[in-house]
Design a protein around this nucleic acid. Structure first.
Length: 592
RNA sequence: GGGGAUGUAGCUCAGUUGGUUAGAGCGCCAGCCUGUCACGCUGGAGGUCGACGGUUCGAGCCCGUUCAUCCUCGCCA
């Protein structure tokens, strides 16, 4: 052994002022450079990299010539300053090196399946299987450190603002709304199941009823839904928050302050606009074709049904009526694109449910395209003015039922932006989407449904529920969006039992149903409930934005793959017949 | 469940019109090298071309099936 302790310093802290010190270091062999008569080893730990030097007179010299990278070594040596021409300005410790006097190989490493000291892209399946190695690599290691800083900033900030951090149950009950639940069988109650919470929604509202005033939690949430790049299957984390005696504006101010201070403290990014712009749901759909618009760029959709109503092109002239839309999308500098550009765009529109994708290319020689022959000059002129079209632009059209048309053209806006827009990686364009409709018409069931959280307060309260067309009622329901990523939904809640009964009545649920499914909530509200509201930004997505990562798996230490498997732990896995029997569970033969 | 992309050495990839023994960089192993820092030089090992079937005199390449991964639609109160 080298001494009574493993290390006196870490691998990231020795600088010029430490020259002359006798030190002990522990770490991994990051890289090795053997010059025959002198051996350099870059030693790495969590804190950084330090170059250590072995000379032939060191008794460990021969052994360390063959030490493999990623082995853990312990060294004892003396800090010396490097010669002027040997200083490495790229390294924090580049002014010094440690001359090894004694050393030992503490843990021999097998050859790793991929290189730790390189940022070369590696097959993700392999990375997930060897996650503990992947986490050694600089990029993932840094991402996880950013995640830690985000959590720690949030805790300090919100605690300072008077929020109380609390825990809520992980084993709870299945709720009739929302995504598929993860279920946990009960041993004590055969045939009954717990559900893992999709969010602590009801608990946090009950905490407001309990008078805790302001609550937050870094809350695990479980939803059995298929994965996406920005959606981890199984579990994810929310910054879950709820506040009493607040209105929408109070909450917006709290969140804007948090995001501004956190972004400034932890990143070199810039928030485009403070306070965050507020866009109504309807405007967002009309202008951006999405309820999570990326407002870093323009390319807004324009309504042009009224213009085409004057023309004779039948497919478009009939769209100028309530419930329909004809949207124009101008894409700059595309007139020179080959035919394949337009064919691919149309194919993409069709994949998203469009009947087709009409377009006019404004070339030097005049407007061109499949539909131009149906349009007269005056109409095209009016279109040019409305949409501010210049020579070299192309205008694309989508028409039909309002919501579907907006969504399709919104996806086309994103599609073209990916090809044509240069994004500033430092920009964070937050916005609030407000005034979501309380109800929507469910085409499948031919009835009115809640469009979001049934516990949201309808704008106008009881009066609106009694006197307005349900489909025109708005809710105090809002989303926070950044760079086209939805960070969270939130709402000012409905804390009045009589308003809640009425709200449920509109979607066809009587008082008995509400009492049965949400009796604990209603009951709580009958004992004096403060007005309250909250939000729950996705923690993983915040960290993704801060780390410029396109995939949520890059900010989670041990993520599952797209099929909700943990390849390192081999989860999910089989259990013994005894375990099943204890839980009164029989596995069906699913091969049939 | 649908659509798209990918699959060749441990890793990242190339592989022409179907034609001899499937290549490169990195890594690995051995040797050389006293100032490198992505060290350098020499040599070597390493391949069921995802799997199965078919077409062909001949398949990494063409066809069919299938598996895996990623992206996406559905789904995500």
């Amino acid at each position: 052994m080298l001494g009574s302790k493993y290390r006196t310093h870490n691998c990231g802290e020795l600088v010029k002022g430490d020259v002359g010190k006798e030190v002990l270091l522990g770490g991994w062999v990051h890289r090795k450079r053997d010059h025959g008569g002198v051996l350099f080893i870059d030693m790495r730990d969590h804190y950084g990299i330090t170059q250590v030097v072995l000379n032939p007179d060191c008794k460990c010299y021969a052994e360390f010539q063959h030490v493999r990278t990623e082995s853990v070594i312990l060294i004892q040596g003396k800090v010396i300053s490097r010669a002027d021409d040997a200083i490495n300005s790229k390294m924090k410790t580049g002014d010094i090196e440690v001359v090894v006097e004694d050393a030992q190989i503490e843990s021999v490493a097998d050859v790793t399946p991929f290189m730790i000291s390189s940022d070369e892209k590696v097959n993700e399946e392999l990375r997930l299987k060897y996650r503990f190695l992947d986490l050694r690599r600089e990029s993932l290691h840094n991402n996880l450190m950013m995640r830690s800083r985000v959590i720690s900033f949030i805790r300090k900030h919100l605690s300072d603002k008077g929020f109380t951090e609390m825990q809520t149950p992980i084993l709870t009950s299945s709720s009739p709304e929302g995504a598929r639940d993860y279920l946990v069988p009960s041993r004590v109650h055969p045939g009954q199941f717990y559900a893992l919470p999709q969010a602590p929604q009801q608990f946090k509202q009950l905490l407001m009823v309990s008078g805790f005033d302001k609550y937050f939690q870094i809350a695990p949430c479980f939803r059995d839904e298929d994965a996406r790049a920005d959606r981890s299957p199984g579990e994810f984390y929310q910054l879950d928050m709820e506040m009493s005696f607040i209105q929408q504006d109070d909450l917006f101010a709290q969140l804007e302050e948090l995001f501004l201070e956190m972004t400034t403290a932890l990143t070199d990014k810039k928030i485009t606009q403070m306070p965050f712009p507020r866009i109504t749901y309807k405007d967002a759909m009309n202008k951006y074709g999405s309820d999570k618009p990326d407002i870093r760029y323009g390319m807004e959709l324009m309504e042009v049904a009224d213009i085409f109503a004057k023309g004779s092109f039948k497919a478009f002239s009939s769209l100028n009526e309530k419930g329909k839309a004809l949207k124009a999308l101008v894409v700059k500098e595309t007139a020179g694109e080959p035919r394949s550009f337009f064919d691919k765009a149309e194919a993409h529109a069709k994949e998203n449910g469009a009947m087709g994708l009409g377009y006019i290319v404004f070339k030097e020689t005049g407007p061109k395209g499949p539909i131009v022959k149906f349009l007269d000059d005056a109409l095209i002129q009016e279109l040019k003015e409305r949409c501010a079209i210049e020579e070299g632009d192309t205008v694309f059209f989508g028409g039909g039922e309002w919501l579907k048309t907006c969504e399709i053209m919104g996806r086309m806006r994103t599609y073209f932006a990916e090809k044509k827009v240069e994004f500033d990686s430092k920009e964070m364009a937050f916005c609030w989407i407000v005034d979501f409709p309380m109800y929507e018409y469910n085409e499948d069931d031919k009835k009115i449904d809640f469009s979001h959280n049934p516990f949201s307060m309808p704008q106008g309260g009881m009066d609106a529920l009694l006197n307005k067309d349900p489909l025109d009622i708005l809710a105090y329901q809002y989303d926070i969006v950044c760079n086209g990523i939805e960070l969270s939904s939130g709402a000012i809640r409905n804390h009045k039992p009589e308003v809640m009964y009425k709200a449920f009545e509109i979607v066809g649920y009587d008082q008995a149903f509400v009492d049965d499914k949400f009796g604990h909530m209603i009951n709580a509200f009958k004992f004096g409930a403060p007005p309250h509201g909250g939000i729950a930004p996705g923690l993983d997505r915040i960290v993704m934005l801060y780390c410029d990562e396109p995939s949520i798996r890059e900010v989670i230490a041990f993520p599952m793959n797209g099929k909700a498997q943990d390849l390192m732990m081999s989860a999910p896995g089989s259990v013994t017949p005894e375990q099943l029997k204890e839980l009164s569970i029989k596995i069906l033969d699913t091969e049939l």
